[in-house]
Design a protein around this nucleic acid. Structure first.
Length: 504
RNA sequence: GGGCGCGUAGCUCAAUGGUAGAGCAGUGGCCUUUUAAGCCAUUGGUUGGGAGUUCGAGCCUCCCCGCGCUCACCA
């Protein structure tokens, strides 16, 4: 490590401490209370009018030091709260007090023992008898100074450069409590989803991340290699094909929450690895899944936010069921005036889109053109929760056709705040139809198109054993977290988002 | 990958093409109820990297690196 001038001063302090017989990194800490527990202890004792308070020991990072000669005010912060230390020469002694100004810096982890009281300004504080270093920090925290206004911490000139925040997330988290809150919420979201699905008799399972054949989505994979087996493997792009194998194996309701990997562009709503929830429910169809989706999102909002209405950007989103249900064809007709049913071929649709001055890839098949209309014109208008349903067959190779209309599949996507949140369908469980679709898909992609999924023979074999009717569902956890924490980029909901490698 | 923008002290930010600065942090002092404590003094820079134009470049030009926004891409 190369240390800068500020850091070298602190390294020097470490050496001077050791020379003075003080260990800057003692092995054990002796903590009796978190800061939060200490505050609660004092408040309840105060409410009972109980003047006897035990001596307690707290630990945390030094976040402020205000020396006033023979009296020093400081704040420590642990994972629970921030608490003021009151260090007076009367209690700690002259030598010990000098030790503080001699060796201690903002950011150091320390331990302090004493009794709680209120200062003249009314702040609950620890009257410190003794204290000790727990872990000396060398690099200064990237926060200039904090102020406490009405009990809330106001930070001045704190770390805000996004690049540094993402690359050094530890420093971001250490100084920006609202960032910590996003990730607490994220975990609460996952817990609430698990709770909901468990309650509905779903079994949480884990399926392979390293796969010999990738599938279940149209995306380019990451490729890796197993040395001993001399075999290329792919990092999964979805869980779908493995989870439905489990339905064949008589697990009627299964779900998985885990990581998908897609070797594609990075943007405010795309990270190369992202967290997905997929569930598969035997004897259900997409209408059943729609209802379950509403209930599930409402459950999460109730649990995590305690509300069914929440702000996102300039909007207030209301997830109270029932959500709007809009046929894809009707939705596109409403916003573009194009009736896709009047254009059964890509040529016809492209001609009309061209006539309207729309921007699109002229080489796209019909399904992808429809997807363009959806993404460019319809999706941005879907602010309040909306289910778009009945998608064209050729962009839905794993979805079952609508009875009586082989060109349409029973599929829906959920949109909130102009963003695709989830994707679900009545699963195709006819092995002969599935094989035909795979072959059809293979033909629509060029030989070298990496989005062209290789045919998964084993999946077809599983289906051949008999696959029950299934309603399937997938949702991005990162995007759901964006919604519920009012964040504009996916990077704010991923602890360590991928950034380009940088020479150090 | 294309377009636009940004990169200055540890952090947040200034600086007409003309001596690189402030606040906080740091360092040395004073101060026994402060809370961005205060007061006095003081250190700190290859202005992301490289090349060019110019008497002179943080500023203008080009190349490179990184980040942001956006388009493309993305079931």
């Amino acid at each position: 490590m190369e240390y800068n001038e500020l850091e070298k001063i602190r390294v020097e302090k470490i050496h001077r401490m050791r020379a003075a017989g003080i260990e800057p990194y003692p092995t054990r800490a002796n903590v009796t209370h978190t800061c939060r527990a200490a505050i609660e202890l004092f408040e309840s004792a105060e409410a009972k009018g109980d003047p006897t308070l035990p001596e307690i020991t707290l630990a945390g990072r030094l976040r402020s030091i205000r020396p006033m000669g023979k009296l020093i005010f400081a704040h420590i912060e642990d994972g629970s709260a921030r608490l003021q230390l009151f260090l007076r020469v009367n209690e700690v002694g002259e030598n010990k007090l000098e030790e503080l100004s001699e060796y201690y810096d903002l950011g150091d982890f320390i331990e302090a023992s004493g009794t709680l009281f209120r200062t003249r300004t009314g702040e609950i504080s620890l009257r410190v008898n003794t204290f000790r270093m727990l872990a000396k920090a060398i690099t200064p925290l990237p926060a200039a100074k904090d102020e406490i206004v009405d009990g809330k911490v106001v930070r001045h000139a704190t770390l805000s450069d996004p690049e540094t925040r993402y690359r050094q997330r530890y420093a971001d988290l250490a100084v920006n409590p609202e960032v910590r809150q996003i990730f607490r919420t994220r975990t609460a979201i996952v817990r609430a989803l698990q709770e909901f699905l468990d309650k509905n008799d779903f079994l949480e399972v884990e399926t392979p991340i390293l796969q010999p054949i990738y599938g279940g989505a149209a995306a380019r994979p990451f490729i890796t290699h197993h040395n001993q087996l001399k075999q290329d493997l792919y990092l999964r792009i979805s869980f779908e094909l493995y989870l439905k194998r489990l339905n064949v194996g008589m697990f009627d309701r299964v779900y998985e929450i885990g990581r998908d990997f897609r070797n594609e562009g990075v943007s405010f709503k795309h990270n190369p690895e992202f967290t997905q929830l997929e569930f598969y429910m035997a004897y259900a169809d997409y209408l059943k899944v729609m209802e379950l989706t509403e209930q599930m999102i409402v459950h999460v909002c109730d649990k995590v936010l305690g509300a069914r209405r929440f702000p996102y950007g300039d909007h207030v989103i209301d997830v109270t069921p029932p959500w709007r249900r809009l046929e894809l064809r009707q939705g596109i007709l409403d916003v573009t005036g194009i009736d896709i049913d009047q254009h059964p071929t890509a040529e016809s649709l492209a001609k009309t889109m061209h006539a309207k001055g729309m921007n699109f890839n002229p080489n796209y098949p019909r399904g992808k053109l429809i997807d363009t209309l959806l993404g460019d014109y319809l999706e941005p208008t879907l602010i309040q929760p909306t289910f778009l349903y009945d998608y064209p067959r050729d962009i839905s190779p794993l979805a079952k056709a609508k009875p009586g209309n082989p060109a349409i599949t029973e599929r829906f996507e959920g949109f909130i705040a102009g963003m695709e949140l989830c994707n679900a369908f009545t699963e195709l469980n006819d092995p002969l139809d599935q094989e035909a679709r795979f072959i059809e898909m293979g033909n629509t992609y060029a030989e070298d198109d990496e989005e062209r999924n290789p045919i998964d023979i084993d999946y077809l074999r599983a289906m051949s054993y008999g696959m029950p009717p299934i309603g399937g569902f997938g949702m991005g956890i990162d995007r759901l977290t964006m919604l519920l924490t009012n964040q504009r980029t996916i990077r704010e909901t991923i602890l360590f988002p991928h950034l380009r490698e940088r020479d150090e």
